[in-house]
Design a protein around this nucleic acid. Structure first.
Lengths: 210, 210
DNA sequence: AAATAAAAAACGATCAGTCAGTCATTTTTA
DNA sequence: TAAAAATGACTGACTGATCGTTTTTTATTT
């Protein structure tokens, strides 16, 4: 009955999503026309609307970035038991994600999504929930660190988590604007940030990060 | 010769800018129509175009936020000589700016500007230059701190500055998304961040911020 | 031939921007 | 000073273009 296989169908879907991602990355959601996506995908108007109900549908599909969340989860889940080490590992993962050239378009679309989240309820939910995940993870790590006496108890775990997340959000911005950010040096500074949360100052010349 | 005074002219201009700010804050640059701005300003289409050449003109006029820059400059310029205290003062200024309800629209428009900076060269210049100013200020403070032996020399001054700026950018996002951010607790954590950059750990229970 | 995927054409709606004209005020003329 | 002419401030109906979407037509597969 079906003219093309499910595999082919999924492939076509990805084809459209990739075209939309590239267009949205270049010109944002509202300055990208369906005609742009159609042209870039190599399909036709009608075909695109066979796979997505509307333009907003495409926006919502791309505002979410499950890849990143999963990467974060996996990397830290299999980490050692030391919460401080866990935080540093998290920094490493984000640094890698931040500098991956293949992820440039996703980061740019992410920023457009941050702005869109201000006026689109569904996009906001997606964005906020996408951030809640790593935040909860950081909170858990910090609370364990505080319980173990490794991290200052006078600082709220939630506050610490928000600070770390804010740092990564800010670096996405600065990087995508084309500023020449020395990511390695900055991540060393972020390691210093984590030191600031600790009760005792570790040896300054320490750890070599990947 | 002129039918209205320069004062009146400037007042009309502000009237339009305020209407545009409110509209852009609500719906972003590209989802706001000139009709929206016209209606909100209480003027007519033609009148608006007497004061601004185009919609892009309005966008560029609002992407810039000189108020904030000046506030930062003034507050720290008159600060004490201690660079560490200077950094903490900077945090205080930003915390205040972040929680000022009157600045909500400007912060939201700022976020829209961050996204717009990805595709509009002129907006990007405005945004990046607006950030270069406080960054240079932080770099100067940090370098003085490093020279005085107060701040770790193994961390780049530029890296530290970028981390601090990233923190504020991230908090603007989290705040504007409507998340219930405990700004006071977070700023205490940011003070901890600054501690992390220092060579010696100051007394944990310290300073009461304004 | 029946069914479905894709292409092409076309839809109404909305967009930023324009322009001929109105009204009020100022300047000139008498 | 009073009427007339001129100019600036402003209006809002209108334009061509472009928008996202739908409908119709063509092509392909079972």
């Amino acid at each position: 009955m079906p003219k093309i296989s499910a595999k082919q169908r999924e492939s076509r879907r990805q084809q459209i999503l990739e075209a939309a991602l590239a267009c949205f990355s270049d010109n944002g959601f509202h300055q990208t026309g369906m005609a742009d996506i159609v042209k870039r995908s190599g399909l036709s108007h009608g075909a695109v609307y066979l796979y997505f109900q509307s333009k907003d549908d495409l926006i919502e599909a791309l505002a979410d970035d499950r890849h990143r969340r999963e990467a974060v989860l996996n990397s830290v889940a299999q980490g050692s038991g030391d919460p401080i080490e866990g935080l540093h590992a998290l920094v490493g993962v984000y640094a890698q994600w931040l500098t991956d050239p293949a992820g440039e378009a996703r980061r740019r679309v992410g920023i457009h999504g941050w702005a869109e989240a201000l006026r689109n309820r569904r996009v906001r939910s997606t964005v906020v929930e996408g951030i809640d995940m790593p935040r909860a993870l950081i909170v858990a790590l910090v609370e364990r660190g505080q319980h173990d006496g490794l991290i200052r108890r006078d600082l709220g775990a939630d506050a610490i988590a928000r600070v770390l997340i804010a740092i990564f959000q800010g670096f996405v911005l600065q990087k995508c604007w084309g500023e020449d950010v020395d990511v390695e040096a900055c991540m060393t500074a972020v390691a210093g940030v984590i030191d600031g949360f600790c009760t005792t100052k570790p040896d300054v010349r320490r750890r070599t990060r990947t």
